[in-house]
Design a protein around this nucleic acid. Structure first.
Length: 593
RNA sequence: GGUCUCAUAGUUCAACGGAUAGAACGGAAGUUUCCUAAACUUCAGAUCCAAGUUCGAUUCUUGGUGAGAUCACCA
């Protein structure tokens, strides 16, 4: 409907004033609640074609549109705004069309693009924390939204499983574990290994302090601490392929990955393909050498290879070290190249925190310089840090919020609240636990996804799990109310019937239908801008609108059968809409809560 | 210092260059009991500063101020 209106407005301008206006010059928006009408055309831009006052122009266009579009019942003009009122029959048609579609909101799979989306990308030396949570939710949700738009999405995870950080955990484990394992201690693997990483750091600091006390300059002490030298030696052994080192490395990574697996399952995210940096870290070397031969890159006397980006306002960037080994940037060039040739993807999205904005700016620039035609197809979905009400998380100060701990706490809060109110009394323990999990994760996901990704956000665990206001649980709660109404209606033998075209919808009913009808365009917009936040805010608006609607029109009390059935239908469709839209954010709906 | 991002009620978040800047939480007052972890209705309360472009600027441009990120032979 809205697309059709835009087209027709453009023709109207052409017919009335003989000026060809492109469709993106037409500004169509939903009429604000305080005015009469459904859609509003902003006519200010057309006054230069009509050479008349905004009011007169709007009037003429309104006349034309009403004559030529049957669905337009009336129009009114306020200043330069032309408000169009659509006939009630149209809205009833929309409602009838939407109902019964379980996949309402999802576009069919037609000529969509193929995306690859890389997200999560953890290091294997410590467990996931709150920052990863934002990353995972964003990556998963954007994928779902793109899929809902009819695109194909390959979700990938690049696990950073090699380097000095994992060697630090390995050394500490060798020295201090006495052969302990996650199995023997009952600890989750990632936490187990993370503890040794922390242990390493403690030991390292103690050694530095001791060296300084013995008269070593601090800078030198930091370089010369024995345990650090041991970690470096271990990295050397690893790169040399020393069997014992490799075996230990494999063992510790397995522990961590098993732990991650559990956290991913809990968060409800998954991947189509997992890359390991240990397998990709040498990539890109040949490409860089070719770039060097082509004169795009240059070599310093010491042997290292660089890209000169100063003409683009950036610095020089190292691509190969003196010893010829790759750096992070080199690997990224290599893996991107592989992916584009292997999967024939139209676009690659990297979900990575904004501390790497510079990295991705440089990456796309270098790829362009190297002459890859896909250089423009790599996108960085950059997101801001997550802070706590007390301020930034600092690993040094131990204020990092662990992902598993946080989720466990939220589930516990949900459990306690529910137990107090005894609402799930009829449920078995497993069923109830499932509800707590859905509520806790719904709260977390909604709270994080409703915020514009690029902004730094403050996460307040207490507020997020509030059951009122702009929260996930409020949305879930609204859904369960709808389901409860459905159940009661069924018990009373009431069935929802298609709306009667002869019974016009009231204002509140109509605005609810309008809101429901908007879902497809919200999904499309969210897909284009990679913004789950748009969807989140939409769902809240719908949930809130439903609550108001239900307050004004108690469905089960209504005596007129046709009216009652239409309203029941409307409520049920609200439920489907909320469920589907929330599903794209990864928020599951409980039947009761 | 260079580059990039952000700045909106007390707080957490909204607002393709459009109408009187919306919500939520918190605060004040009230209504109701068909769904209920009840909901709904009022009230008070904000665009960091200064210029510019525009019929119209929270939005675009420039310059300030403030906050954050980044500029490694780390990843």
């Amino acid at each position: 409907m809205d697309k059709m209106l835009v087209t027709r407005v453009a023709t109207a301008v052409k017919e009335c004033y003989g000026a060809a206006v492109s469709e993106n010059e037409v500004q169509l928006q939903e009429t604000r609640k305080e005015f009469e009408g459904d859609w509003t055309v902003v006519v200010f831009p057309f006054t230069r074609y009509s050479r008349k006052s905004p009011e007169a122009t709007a009037g003429e266009l309104g006349d034309y549109l009403q004559r030529h579009i049957v669905e337009i019942k009336a129009y009114n003009v306020i200043k330069g705004f032309l408000n169009l009122t659509i006939s009630p029959a149209y809205w009833i048609g929309v409602l009838n069309e939407a109902t019964g579609k379980e996949r309402f909101g999802y576009a069919g799979k037609q000529d969509g693009k193929r995306y690859m989306i890389e997200y999560s990308s953890p290091n294997t030396n410590k467990p996931l924390h709150l920052g990863h949570i934002r990353n995972n939710f964003l990556g998963w949700s954007v994928s779902e939204i793109l899929r809902a738009n009819g695109h194909e999405v390959i979700m990938v995870n690049l696990v950073n499983d090699r380097g000095i950080h994992i060697c630090k955990s390995m050394i500490a484990w060798q020295k201090f574990s006495n052969g302990a394992t996650p199995g023997s201690t009952g600890k989750k693997g990632d936490h187990f290994v993370g503890d040794y990483y922390v242990r390493f750091d403690r030991e390292y600091k103690a050694q530095v302090e001791q060296l300084v006390k013995d008269g070593t300059p601090e800078e030198e002490a930091r370089e010369q601490a024995p345990i650090l030298l041991e970690a470096r030696e271990m990295l050397r052994l690893w790169e040399a392929g020393d069997p014992a080192t490799i075996a230990l490395w494999r063992q510790m990574n397995d522990w961590v990955l098993q732990g991650f697996e559990e956290t991913y399952r809990l968060m409800g995210v998954s991947f189509d393909k997992v890359y390991f940096e240990s397998e990709t870290y040498k990539k890109g070397r040949d490409i860089v050498l070719k770039g060097l031969a082509d004169g795009v890159l240059y070599r310093k006397e010491s042997g290292s290879v660089w890209a000169d980006l100063t003409s683009d306002g950036l610095d020089h960037k190292l691509l190969l070290r003196d010893d010829g080994t790759s750096v992070y940037m080199t690997q990224d060039i290599g893996t991107a190249c592989d992916r584009f040739s292997e999967f024939d993807i139209d676009e690659e999205i990297y979900v990575v925190g904004n501390e790497q904005n510079y990295h991705f700016q440089v990456l796309s620039l270098i790829c362009k310089k190297l002459g890859f035609e896909w250089a423009g197809k790599i996108k960085h979905l950059s997101y801001g840090m997550v802070e706590l009400p007390e301020g930034r998380m600092k690993s040094r100060e131990g204020t990092v919020v662990d992902a598993d701990d946080l989720i466990a706490e939220m589930i516990e809060t949900a459990r306690v609240t529910s137990a107090e109110l005894g609402k799930l009394d009829g449920y078995s323990e497993e069923e109830a636990a499932e509800v707590y999990r859905k509520v806790a994760l719904g709260a977390l996901k909604y709270f994080i996804l409703k915020v514009d990704p690029k902004k730094t956000m403050t996460f307040n665990p207490k507020e997020s799990i509030d059951f009122n206001g702009n929260t996930g649980p409020f949305i879930q709660y609204t859904y369960t109310r709808i389901r409860s109404i459905e159940r009661k209606a069924k018990e009373a033998g009431i069935t929802a019937l298609p709306a009667d075209p002869l019974s016009p919808l009231s204002g509140k009913e109509q605005s609810l239908v309008k809101l429901i009808a908007r879902l497809p365009s919200v999904v499309a917009e969210a897909g284009e801008s990679y913004s789950p936040a748009l969807l989140a805010n939409y769902i809240y608006e719908l949930a809130k609108e439903f609550n108001q609607f239900y307050h004004d029109y108690p469905i089960l009390k209504e005596t007129d059968e046709t009216t009652r059935n239409t309203r029941l239908l409307l409520a049920m469709q609200c439920g489907v809409t909320i469920r589907n839209a929330a599903g794209m954010l990864g928020i599951e709906m409980p039947e009761r809560m």
